[in-house]
Design a protein around this nucleic acid. Structure first.
Lengths: 144, 144
DNA sequence: CGAAAACTTTACGTAAACGTAAGGCGCGGT
DNA sequence: ACCGCGCCTTACGTTTACGTAAAGTTTTCG
């Protein structure tokens, strides 16, 4: 049982689970449009099998799509996600590429920390504004 | 001395602090291009004074630019930022509209809190990914 | 069997946020 | 007088991530 070592979610990406899906099923499940899924294929993020011209998505394809969408939620661009998927897919012993991956994640974390800072400050300012409004309303309440 | 009542940050946004800036100075300070600053003006986010055709930015303008860029870092669109700036800018002489204003600020705060939550979760996921990468790298370090 | 549903390709459209010339003006220094 | 620098406007170009027809084929259901 050569359970290939993989990173995180990729563990169920290469496996064949006999289950297949249509584009519509995946679109429904993940709440995206057909167009979106085909777009990811155009971009080389997915390459489902075909029966005639119709796309047949394997369980692995479904997993890839899940990863793509998660990448999006995490704020990565399509081309970044493409590179990540390549890292997941291409043999994972390429330490050199792994470092690149780590760097991108790190970049993203720095950005998120910056965003957190900004949010805190903005929040504080808005609360102050709110207080001033309350004060103002209270004042003009007493003297109509 | 009719110090017009203003709200929150606008107190130092409308004030004249005698200090002025050229577009290049602001571009340098905030590390954006001239084009970017002019773009914000086209979008109605800034309206600096002019000497002839040359733009003269006041201290208030500088503050607005800072707010704009923070909004961007927070992932708001230009039009959202425009609304946001309006919140800072509006003068509070119409008590009637104040309630609406308060509601808007409140909306914004709720959104910010939601965004905070999302960021925290995203951050956590990324840190986990990072840990897995580190572990992976450490392992392949010991067995070259 | 025939209509509707689900799939396909091709391809132009769009919104956001600037980038990037191209061409011109005014000013301080040499 | 001339150079370069910083500023100006106008305006077309670019990228991202799809949206949106249009028009055809294939599958499925009553």
């Amino acid at each position: 049982m050569t359970t290939e070592p993989t990173i995180g979610l990729s563990s169920n990406l290469g496996r064949n689970d006999t289950q297949t899906f249509s584009i519509g099923q995946l679109a429904d499940e993940f709440e995206v449009t057909h167009r979106t899924i085909r777009f990811y294929e155009d971009e080389g993020l997915l390459s489902p099998a075909r029966r005639g011209t119709t796309r047949i998505y394997s369980n692995g394809d479904r997993g890839r799509l899940a990863l793509i969408l998660r990448g999006k939620r995490l704020g990565f661009s399509i081309s970044e996600i493409r590179e990540f998927l390549d890292l997941y897919t291409v043999d994972e012993t390429q330490t050199q590429q792994m470092n690149y991956f780590a760097d991108r994640v790190n970049d993203r974390l720095l950005m998120l920390d910056q965003q957190m800072e900004d949010l805190k400050q903005t929040r504080q300012e808005l609360v102050q504004i709110q207080d001033q409004i309350k004060a103002h309303l209270a004042k003009s309440d007493r003297s109509p």
